[in-house]
Design a protein around this nucleic acid. Sequence first.
DNA 1: GTCGAGGGCTGATATAGTTTAGGCTGGAAG
DNA 2: CTTCCAGCCTAAACTATATCAGCCCTCGAC
Lengths: 244, 244
Amino acid sequence: MVNRLTCKLEAFGPLPEADRFLLDEVIRSAQAVGPRTDLIREGQTPSDVNLILEGFACRYKVLPTGRRQIMAYLVPGDFCDLHVFILKTMDHGIATLSACTVVKISRARILELMERPAIAKAFWWAALVDEATLREWLVNVGARKAEQRVAHLLCELLLRLRTVGLTTGNQYELPITQAELADTVGLTGVHVNRILQRLRADGLITLRSKNLVILDEERLKAFSNFNPNYLHLAEQDGLPEQCL
Amino acid sequence: MVNRLTCKLEAFGPLPEADRFLLDEVIRSAQAVGPRTDLIREGQTPSDVNLILEGFACRYKVLPTGRRQIMAYLVPGDFCDLHVFILKTMDHGIATLSACTVVKISRARILELMERPAIAKAFWWAALVDEATLREWLVNVGARKAEQRVAHLLCELLLRLRTVGLTTGNQYELPITQAELADTVGLTGVHVNRILQRLRADGLITLRSKNLVILDEERLKAFSNFNPNYLHLAEQDGLPEQCL
DNA sequence: GTCGAGGGCTGATATAGTTTAGGCTGGAAG
DNA sequence: CTTCCAGCCTAAACTATATCAGCCCTCGAC
């Protein structure tokens, strides 16, 4: 099995052989989790760190009105709750969207990994990129209009999934319902539906049965004003071979 | 001069005498910065860490459309860019809103502080709270309606400023223009104006010449659905005496 | 093969928020 | 004392998005 975590971390910089080996050890004991299942709920105190290996999960909050806001997508290679070590209780929930495979990593194990300087630095980088992504989402929801919001999100996912080797060309699996998309961009399902149609009509994308094709990457990026700087990817021509 | 940084960090937990002393050293060489001035721009590579001692600053991005989104308020005691150590270039700008006094702290100095376990842990905590706040802002803009957005923001600021001793009862200085408020909650100036009037008419707040009074704290919190859990403040009855 | 449910799609109507434009006020500058 | 300007406030027309209600597929369970 391809180690998506390694793929992701190497987008920051290459890791020593020994570190890669260590990271392979860590993802041994994966477990399957069904779709729409809470991994951890608001108010709970997590003990382990969850790492996504396959599928999509999300951070979310639910307001008393019933409105749910999704605050992050967690895709293969992403940690769910590295902050375990400092904060006692979760201020938000984490749930799977599609079916996932997940590893629970103990604090002890994480601390062990953190002793490797290259890994520690890469973990830091990953945490900071998560925060930068969150900022971009705020911009997206606060300042862009509906059509560009979803276009921007689709661009972001293209890059993120590409760095973990989960795209084929300009195409990737998006195992997400329109209602869930709506909850992430702050719109209604109805409206998201109409926007997707417009994007299709404009010849920008194809989306059928959870399979997204970006027909014109440059045009979609231009249209949504996508600037990848916030992902802080190292400028390298290709992926490490083990991620292809 | 009261050390707002210490006040803030002690909201997480008490610091040893020696650490407090060290933090006092650090804020010696403060400098004044005028209102509406960039502290650092998108694309630049910062060398020092900025710490706000007085006044309000913000993180922001400007879209090609001209629309600006404010992504965080930085109030006394807040660090601007602790991520200096890992990420090379800024993916957003930081600017003062009001006139500020700011200290520039060198990397070396920060590393020195980080050797103190209590301080290191408190810095971590502060960074994580910043991220949690960002998440809450995303919820605010994505899921709440205009009137509650503004109300929620005012509640948050009340708590944040209270922990650094900058409130008197339910009252604080909000040195911010309505247009800036609009840029932070993702609305137009016109609309923010109307909303402020409604909040006044409902007897929830008073706002005159940058001076905000929250007339009924409980009602405002209930109205805006404010849950302070994301600020992760320790449950303590009062402030350390030096912050009063 | 039928049934039922979830997801995608559609149209009509309602509303929140934007845009534009203009007037008012109070304080800073001359 | 006047002028000027930024910030605040208001009004009216407009538009993006929400709401509501319902239809139609598809696919898996039975």
